[in-house]
Structures are given as C-alpha cells and as structure tokens.
Write a protein that binds this DNA or RNA. Structure first.
Lengths: 204, 204
DNA sequence: TTAGAAGTTGAATATTGATTCATGTTTCAC
DNA sequence: GTGAAACATGAATCAATATTCAACTTCTAA
C-alpha cells in the first residue's frame, strides 16, 4: 500500500509522478477556494498547467483526486506536528507544542478546514480515517504518558477526541479566521486549561 | 428581525407559515441525507408534499432555504441545551448537563453535523454565526462563573472555543457515529477532564 | 535506431436539476 | 357574492461541466 492507494492509474515515471503531484497541489487550491462541487476539473488542470485530458490519466474521477487530497493533507499535517512535538519532556509540553504547530500549519494552509470538512459528504470514509488517524495517535500518546505517571488516569479514548476537537476549533477560530494572537499565546491558554482544569483548587 | 430574517417572501397567513415550516423540516432531511449539492429542490418539495413551484413562493433559492435551515437548527440546539442546563448549581455541573443534552440532541438529529459543516462553503457567514452564537453564550457563562469564584481565571474567549470544540467532536464520535456509550458516561469523563485537568496533582 | 510504453492533448458528448412563469385554486374582508 | 391577495401547481427552459476518446508527442530499453 503506497500513497496512490487503490488507483489503477499510478504514474510509472518521474515525469508522471511530477504531473500527478502538480495536480494534487492545484486541487488543494481549487477545492479550498471553491469547495468540491464548485471546483472544476478544468480549474485544477489550468492551475496545474496541463490539459484537461491529462487529469484522467491519473485519476478516475473528481472524487478520487479529492480523496487523494484529503489523505495527502492528513499525512502532511500529522508529519508536521509529529516533528515539532518529538522529544517533549512531558505530555503537557507536547500538547502545547502540538497546538502551536497545528496553528502554524493552518496559517500556511488556510484551506485545510474547508477541504477536510467537506470530506464528510464527498468521501465520508476518508473523513473518518482522517480524524481516526489523529485520534489513534493521540490515544497512544496519552496511554504512554499515563503509564509513565505523567498524567492522571481517565478514559483516554474519549479524551483524545475531546483534545482533537479543542485543537480543531481553536485553530479554526484563531488561525483560519483571524490571526491577531500568536500561536504561543493561544497554546499557553489552552495548556493551562487542560493541564489544571477550570475548577478552583479548594477541594483537591 | 424575525425568524424569516431578510426574506421578501415571508408567509402572511397561518396556512403559508405551515407550508414554509414543512419545507424547512423536509430540507433538514434532504440536505442531511444528500448534502447541499446532491440535494434536489424537487426532493424537498416531495418530502414536504407540495409542488415544485411552491418552493419559490417561500424561498428565492436553494441557498436561502439552506441558510434558514442552519439558523433553525442553531436555535433548536441552543434552546434544547439552555433548557437542560438552567439552574445548575455550578459551572462544572452545567458543563456536564450541557454535553449530555447535546449528545442526546445529536442522537435525535443525526444530520446536524453534515448540515452545519457544509454551511462552511454554502453560507460561510451563517456558519460563523452558528458557532459564534454558541461561543458568545459560552463566554458569558464562563465570565459569570468566574465572577462568582466558581472557576479559575483564564482567557474565557479562547476557553469557549476550546470547550465548544470538545463538545462538537465528542458528539460527532460518540453520538453521530456510534452510540454504544450513554450520554451520562461520556459527559462524566469529559467533566472530569475539564474540571481537574490531566496533570497529576503533585505540584499544586 | 526504433518500437512501443508512457504521457499529453482539447473538442465533443450527455446529463442534470435550479429556476421561471402562466395558470389555477383558496381565503376572506367588505 | 365578489374581487383581490395569497397560495399552489408542474411543464419547459437553459446553463454548466464531468467524462470520453482518438490522435499526437516524448521517453527509454535493447
């Protein structure tokens, strides 16, 4: 299983791989700006600088390139975050760095939200896999942190989804929609919340 | 400003209001099942039991009824939650009840997610208003709880979006996608997380 | 050098469904 | 009882674009 997953149309030469890559990157812009249905294949091929027919050399349909794009964005995002979270001294620091990285990523890929959330209709399985992959990785990290005694016990499955949701919504509001606050400020505020909770310490 | 907002086509009689209401409810199903673009006006009118042309008596376009639907769902959701959160003894209890109510709501309106998130492309302003209204209400609640000394200080704006994100994602995963866990269980796990945080209590 | 595999081209096809509109029906104030 | 406003109807229009395809070009192994 490679990055071309199930397609019968995988490129065989490096020239072909380049063209396919150009198409996927053009699709990021076209789908991001116009949404799946308003996006035109001709828009993608124009942006990629190839002829309309070339599209069908590499993809069977509009839906197929969209799926490929969602997977591509997922790999890109997870890779970017994993790199910047690596070797954090503890889970809370990893959370902070992860959110910072995510916000920075969104600021460089404004179309991420539109693309990913449209996958819900266009390719629901791709959508579930997208977040499922994040959740699985998150859960493992929490598990390990729990075993190290780094964090409290809890239902880490549920926690993972909750933490992803926080990241996604904070990213949407403060990175995709507006960027007056620095990623560090935002991440600090969130880390404070999930580190100590919102209750006052009186009961303990 | 009423629920028909800017439309020039507001119904004038109760017969008209009924027909319009039937159309919006049919739209919830049609848009929810097929998504905005695959949804057909004829599908909406058939479900509502009226003729195709009747649609244009009440709405100028497919987009307009979609906007109306998003607003309608927002009012419905907020109303439902507010009712079940009212008169909670403290903020954490309110959080728990709110999430429980939300999960139950989603289980009765499986199409909520598809509709709301598709609004991102179809009617971005309606989408922002949808979550903006939630966030504003949330922020006010946190503010009041903070003033009462019920919760710690923090950036309540950011916290609001984080908490909404948690609710949305947990609801998606455990209510829209799967419902093996009870809303009470889920809410308890989340309340635990946001109440006390994930750090162990050693430092304090 | 060359065959054929891989890649490229863009005009033509074919389907789909949103919106219009001319006509018919119901309601009700007077 | 009547006229007008409100409401309801569904066949016809029309624009948009995903996909196909037959011809052409580039590359590479032997």
């Amino acid at each position: 299983m490679n990055q071309y997953s199930t397609s019968k149309k995988a490129p065989k030469t490096s020239r072909g791989r380049q063209t396919r890559e150009k198409l996927v990157q053009a699709a990021e812009i076209e789908f991001g700006e116009r949404g799946f249905y308003e996006a035109a294949i001709s828009g993608i091929t124009q942006r990629a600088g190839v002829a309309l027919g070339t599209f069908y050399v590499y993809f069977d349909s509009k839906e197929e390139i969209f799926r490929a794009l969602v997977e591509y964005m997922g790999r890109l995002t997870r890779g970017w975050i994993a790199e910047r979270v690596a070797e954090s001294p503890n889970r809370l620091t990893a959370e902070r760095r992860g959110l910072e990285a995510f916000i920075d990523f969104v600021r460089g890929h404004r179309n991420l939200y539109r693309i990913v959330s449209e996958a819900q209709f266009v390719a629901e399985d791709a959508y579930r896999e997208y977040y499922g992959a994040f959740a699985a990785a998150y859960r493992d990290n929490l598990q390990q942190a729990g075993e190290r005694g780094d964090i409290r016990d809890g239902n880490y499955d549920i926690w993972s989804w909750a933490l992803i949701g926080m990241n996604v919504f904070v990213g949407m509001r403060y990175a995709a929609w507006e960027d007056s606050l620095s990623s560090a400020e935002i991440a600090a505020s969130i880390t404070d919340l999930i580190g100590s909770g919102m209750s006052r310490g009186e009961a303990s």
